[in-house]
Design a protein around this nucleic acid. Structure first.
Lengths: 335, 335
DNA sequence: GTGAAAGCGCTAACAA
DNA sequence: TTGTTAGCGCTTTCAC
């Protein structure tokens, strides 16, 4: 590796001058600057970021923690974060916690050892106490896509109004005339969605029975299994709200495998609006989370913290929207 | 940040001794070791990786370049790579090139400036000349999922036998009695798949007509559009090979939107076996790429290079396998 | 067993 | 305009 020294020696000046020349700082004569630039070019000089970071205390690196990039909710977000980071001259360390707080802790420890400039932690990656550690260490930290009231301290965060999301889902199904509703939810991480859903039903005078609440685990397969259980009920629901699209896809598959039609025999509504949802049969009705906005605002907030921008609003809540496709329909038959 | 110095001062020894104690090197008395460990604990000492890396010339970091993590082929691979890296004490910088060689170059430059220990570059991320740069710089580099004969030098690589994959797809359709075949392919990156497909048809005495070759661009939408063009042909094909599952999903969607049935009116076969493919209607028949194996072997090869393991086989070719689901069926009608 | 000293490659403050 | 100096926090070698 060629260093500033090497260039300095070759050109016959000191490392400082070389540094100044390369950085374009004013105080170098045009003549020597040219000689230096030429020499750096020829020797294929590459600044050593490690040394620079050590000297400056800045690494131009950020960490991004999520449960698993294999869950199709995350890739678009990760790409957007990385792209934005890149535009700021940053690169991104990607960390899958695999829903394991201890692994998440380990990742955070390593990230801090690396002196990263900031970190974004997605909800479900780890529990809040683990996630609050970097914050306490003074590391710029943004929580993204957490349940807004799970975050007790006023940690910087960008989240989705999941209570409203649950309410929107319920209201859509109610508007379609459904009375027998069920929900597949990954508790306790998604309690807010459940709450919103229940409260809307309550208001409509149709409180949700306990057996109509099934537990999922963020995978398509768990959605499939939960749906099977719901469909086997004596009085089966006419509509199911799966609190993630990924589970909703499993729900649809289970329904079709049971010889039923979606939406004729069962309406299904998801939450997220992942890419594939628009392209399956039937296209999935869902409560869309603006993923790009989520990523953008989280990254901007993080850079705001890193740059110590004054008067930064530390908490942002993003509103979900209903996307009606063809997996839900009006309930018509006897009831 | 608390440093070795701080602990040394607190305990009343020198930084060297502290370092030795923490590293468990033999030459520290049990008494002082305990004092040091206790103190480090209390002061919440965290080693500064930057300083260590600068001193050792090793960063415990690797780079992973891919076109875009938003393409559902990559997340599982990325997760497997990161997980393996993690087990070796490494973390992973994720870089989306967005199919742009210049952006890929920039990423590589930055990675090299960071003194990363190694890099894995996925096919389609950038052109081979850009990808060969880190290799020439002496950086341990593994190409993953490239067209095997695109890689002229003997760069370390782990790839899929795409020619065979194309052949398998053709043979499956031929075995089902199809005579009117078409292919949707993203050239020139996927030429090998096309070649394999064509050669099998040639052998069967059914050479592929030019109009039966449609260009896609790695997106579901491009598969949709390409399929539309094929279905509008005077004699439309009875079976389509889409060279990625993602495009195959678009193909199925276009077919259904055209009022046709899959597989009754059109058989569709993909390549990749992404997670969703098993769960759509109809479940997609595809030539499966062992993604986990791909990731594992690429990462192992990379660590082999980093550790300078002797007698390392530098090139590995992975065989794809046929997964028959329900998007293909025998061709029965008049022909 | 413990310590002193030099060095990794760069930046930053100050001097000439 | 250029150079000197010190220092970022750690590792490593060698001396005590």
């Amino acid at each position: 590796m060629v260093t500033l020294q090497d260039i300095a020696l070759a050109v016959g000046v000191t490392p400082t001058t070389v540094a100044n020349a390369l950085k374009g700082r004013g105080n170098v004569s045009e003549a020597t600057r040219q000689r230096i630039l030429k020499c750096a070019e020829e020797l294929r000089y590459r600044p050593n970021m490690l040394a620079r970071s050590l000297a400056q205390g800045k690494t131009y690196t950020l960490g991004f923690l999520l449960p698993t990039i294999a869950n199709p909710f995350y890739p678009e977000i990760a790409e957007a974060v990385e792209r934005t980071a890149n535009q700021h001259g940053y690169q991104m360390l990607l960390c899958n916690t695999l829903y394991d707080s201890a692994l998440g802790q380990q990742h955070l420890d390593r990230l801090i050892s690396r002196w990263i400039d900031g970190v974004i932690i997605m909800g479900s990656s780890m529990d809040i106490s683990a996630a609050s550690m970097p914050f306490q260490q003074g590391l710029p930290t943004v929580l993204c896509d957490w349940q807004e009231d799970e975050v007790v301290g006023n940690f910087p965060q960008v989240s989705v109004d999941f209570r409203t999301a649950g309410r929107i889902a319920a209201q859509h199904l109610l508007d379609l005339g459904h009375h027998h509703l069920a929900i597949i939810v990954d508790e306790p991480q998604q309690t807010l969605r459940l709450e919103g859903f229940c409260s809307a039903l309550q208001t409509a005078g149709l409180p949700l029975a306990t057996e109509m609440i099934e537990q999922g685990h963020s995978t398509l397969e768990s959605g499939y299994a939960a749906a099977q259980r719901l469909l086997a009920l004596p009085t089966r629901p006419t509509a199911i709200f799966a609190t993630t699209d990924w589970m909703a896809l499993g729900t649809i598959e289970a329904t079709l495998d049971a010889g039923l039609q979606v939406p004729q025999d069962l309406s299904v509504i998801g939450l997220d609006d992942i890419a594939i949802s628009a392209h399956i049969r039937p296209p999935l009705t869902t409560v869309a989370v603006p993923k790009f906005q989520l990523a953008k605002e989280a990254t901007e907030l993080l850079f705001g913290l890193i740059d110590e921008t004054p008067d930064l609003p530390l908490s942002r809540l993003i509103e979900p929207t209903l996307v009606i496709r063809r997996s839900t329909t009006a309930h018509t038959t006897d009831d």
